[in-house]
Amino acid sequence: MRTALVIGTGLIGTSAALALASRGITVHLADHDPAQARTAAALGAGTDEAPGGRVDLAVVAVPPAHVAATLAGAIRGDVARAYIDVASVKGGPRRELLSLGCDLGSYIGTHPMAGKERSGPLAATADLFEGRPWVLTPTRDTDTEVLNLALELVALCRAVPVVMDADAHDRAVALVSHTPQLVSSMVAARLEAADETAVRLCGQGIRDVTRIAASDPRMWVEILSANPGPVADVLSGIAADLDETVRALRSLESADEDKRAGGAAGIEDVLRRGNAGRVRVPGKHGAAPATYEIVAVLISDEPGGLARLFADAGRAGVNIEDVRIEHATGRQAGLVQLMVEPAAAPGLSAALRERGWSLRQ
């Protein structure tokens, strides 16, 4: 690949363009809003000038509802040797292209599993896809050259290629991406009219659950409109669990001992099934989830504090596997939870205490 055309300069399109441009690819940028393409060009993602001829790869990075029409226009204009899209749904756009009479030999649907709560070119980074899965959905009609160019794009963005059937992909993202967005938003919506004293009690748990509720509603309406059936199927299962859980909680209010026992068993069942599902979420580098020991350190909110803590952990010869920060309400301090291998925890705790850090259970 030497040249590329990125159509749509939002977060994903601009991030892909930045990655390609940083590796020597000549990238042309196009957007229905010329100002957005100029912004992406100013960030170093390429040029907003039209290509002088046919490019090697066209990357369509527009909202799902506009993917098929944009791809059809590009294919009919013969702007590239190969065409991909990066929409978060795959079955619908492919069927729309077929209905429009497009030859699908030069096209492959893809979906990089990466993103942010923020959108637009100013949120883009060249390393957005690094180490992240990038789904490819080739069919029997896909030309080998097209697949190879798509794989080259994934490699240049330092992502990890995953080959899937388009409809299987849509069912998968309904479960692991689209439904969590809705559930997060539903939980966060309970806070809108909550009493201020209740909101002030928010801790790390509610922050974890509601983090993605900050996402752009307009973007998510477009995504969910393109994949409504699979998302509704997952939500139906959750709704059944919710009904059972509500009944179990009501039973716990009963004066009848047998009902209370049944209610407790129902709550324990959903919690244990949650444990079993959580264990299946891939851990570090995509490996099986590991069980880490937590070393909790009280840290003041001041410049250089985290850097000093990480440096002291490094001097102790301990690799930090993961980290979380829980901020203290009303105090200029927080609790940093360092996740480390269980065997390393005692040594790290001792080393940090020697260096003056205050540890918590």
Rank of each mutant, 00 (worst) to 15 (best):
A287P: 00
T137R: 00
P112K: 10
W134R: 02
I325C: 06
K116D: 14
R273W: 05
T70Y: 09
G274F: 09
L128W: 10
G283P: 02
A316N: 04
L151K: 13
R94A: 15
A276Q: 12
H28L: 10
G262N: 11
T137K: 03
V163N: 04
M164F: 00
L151F: 09
F310A: 15
R308K: 02
A16D: 00
A114I: 12
V6F: 07
R2E: 01
L224G: 11
V281C: 01
G305W: 03
S349E: 15
T14W: 05
L175F: 08
R280C: 07
H285K: 12
A345V: 12
P342T: 13
S254P: 05
A188M: 15
P161A: 10
A343H: 13
P133S: 09
A30V: 01
G8P: 01
A166I: 03
S177I: 05
G314N: 10
A290W: 02
G286M: 13
V336Q: 01
G24S: 10
A58T: 15
L249D: 01
G330M: 08
D33A: 14
D56N: 07
A333W: 10
A82H: 06
R273E: 09
R355Y: 05
A351L: 08
P342K: 05
P342S: 07
E49P: 00
V62N: 00
G91L: 11
I7Q: 04
V79T: 13
V162E: 12
E222F: 07
N148L: 08
V146P: 04
T245M: 14
A61G: 04
D78A: 15
L249P: 05
A19F: 06
F129R: 00
E222R: 08
D195K: 11
E268S: 14
A4G: 06
Y107H: 01
A41P: 05
A159N: 00
E257N: 04
A316L: 10
A74I: 03
D33N: 15
D241V: 15
I206P: 00
A41S: 13
P346Q: 13
G203N: 04
